[in-house]
Amino acid sequence: MLEQNKFKTKKQQQAWNKTLAGRYYNAMVKRPFLFFGLPFLTTIYAASVYFAEFTAYRYEIQDGKVKALSEEEALKLDKGRRKVDMKEEFYRLQQLGKQDDWEQVRVPRMKGESDNVF
């Protein structure tokens, strides 16, 4: 923890104070609102405004993928389609397989299970 906060000798401290980071840090300690608060608030507010562009672009791409059918396209889709009626489908499906080729079978009971034959 705090490895970055290394001890600086007086000379090292003076050298650091002259660097850009050092000067900004010292200015920040003196005027926290100007050098910390204002950039903080501005960044957050500007981000909220400018990220809207990205979100709008994302929405546009999404919109491009989903398209409503035009009337002509819809008409084309109808071509050669079999007319479906729910009742007729039901009766047709009933006729597809044999209806009476089954018998009731008694399932063998597990060992020790009651047979329930009265």
Partner: peptide, 18 residues
């Protein structure tokens, strides 16, 4: 409309940062 929704969406998500 879409642009308004885009603004309010992104501004809302930015609140997650602070």
């Amino acid at each position: 409309d879409s642009d308004t929704r885009a603004y309010f969406t992104s501004a809302t998500m930015v609140i997650a940062v602070p």
